[in-house]
Write a protein that binds this DNA or RNA. Structure first.
Lengths: 204, 204
DNA sequence: TTTGCCCTCTGAACCTTGTTCATTAAATTT
DNA sequence: AAATTTAATGAACAAGGTTCAGAGGGCAAA
């Protein structure tokens, strides 16, 4: 059955084409200002076709969202090879920051863009699983650090939350460009420099 | 000239009425899902009237945005009464967190909602001044801490950025409900507990 | 009191955008 | 060749943002 397979492949390709066009437009114009017609035009298909492949605009956002988490998750997973847990946490932060800066658009899609109403409800739990996974990787690593005698007097869960929040906060402010308004000496490297301060605090 | 004054007062009041209705709706339904018609109905005026008082939907967002920063700014300003700079930074964080949690809607309006396109441009510099002010208050306080011998080996600017980011990050994740998905023991107090961890790190 | 001006408020109408669905057209199967 | 299945189309609808010509009411001058 080669024909059915070819058709299947074509469908997958068109779906991917729609996603990549949507992503590009979301980045340039923002999600709100990207219309389905924009996307359709960009790939020379009709509006209706987009709806053949995605239930609605939400579903497109949704797909990109998952895609982003998978990418980040993969990058973080690589770090499990680092033996020393303390080195690993430090690296986790760096990788996270690099990802956020290199995929600013994707990052704000993942964390800053308010999730469209309906999708927070139903299967939300399922969708967010990649995020939970990342959180647990961090938590596990910090637990190992504590076992090894680091972070004396700290409590695991809130510590994990703090760690994630600090890194996320720096990335979010950087990406939203709020950082620029504040007149920093070198806005472009502020995240890295901020992170160094954090490591300094942690540093035994 | 009592008549002109009364008219002026009425205008100011109607403007405020529109704003309060808009805020209420933004909170309940989200900005995107609040329509000008919703706002008009809520205050028993016609759609057109809203446009008499505000150029467009953006302008409403804009006005609320400024309002939020003023409120937060005022609360933070009160803390300048605290003599000890180390106590003051700690308090700044607490007040900030309280504000964010008590005005979750407003807070996400201020920081998470992507600023509508056009307004990032032109007079943006002017608008963000309240934010800059808050940042500088924190920076000044931290500078005093350093003078008094705290934060040895740290650099002022990135330290300030880190501090703000950590607190902001925790608030943002909390408000966006991402925190809930992660299955924390007690999601409601996670921000406070995370902040305690941060203070522990800072604490000499 | 009457006249005319000035404001505020009105809501029908227009445009854009998300979404649907009956129809077309092409490919595959019989 | 005919029938069937499937993908793609785009006109049409609903809903929301925005505009604007005009209604209506108060106020001052006549």
């Amino acid at each position: 059955m080669g024909i059915a397979e070819r058709r299947e492949k074509e469908k997958i390709e068109l779906r991917a084409l729609i996603l990549s066009a949507a992503k590009k437009l979301f980045v340039i114009k923002g999600i709100e200002h990207t219309t389905i017609r924009n996307i359709a035009e960009a790939i020379d298909y009709s509006v209706g076709t987009v709806y053949v492949y995605f239930k609605d605009k939400n579903a497109i956002f949704h797909a990109l969202h998952s895609q982003g988490f998978n990418e980040l998750g993969q990058q973080l997973a690589l770090l499990m090879a680092v033996e020393n847990p303390m080195e690993r946490v430090k690296a986790l932060g760096r990788v996270y920051i690099n990802f956020a800066k290199a995929n600013a658009d994707m990052y704000s899609l993942m964390f800053s863009q308010p999730a469209p109403i309906d999708y927070l409800e139903e299967e939300h739990a399922d969708e967010w699983k990649e995020g939970v996974l990342a959180f647990n990787v961090l938590k596990g690593t910090l637990a190992q650090c504590i076992e090894q005698g680091y972070f004396k007097g700290h409590t695991l869960e809130p510590l994990t939350y703090l760690f994630w929040s600090a890194v996320h906060g720096m990335c979010a402010l950087y990406i939203s460009e709020r950082a620029k308004g504040v007149n920093l000496t070198d806005p472009d490297t502020i995240v890295e420099r901020g992170y160094e301060e954090f490591l300094k605090m942690i540093g035994e």
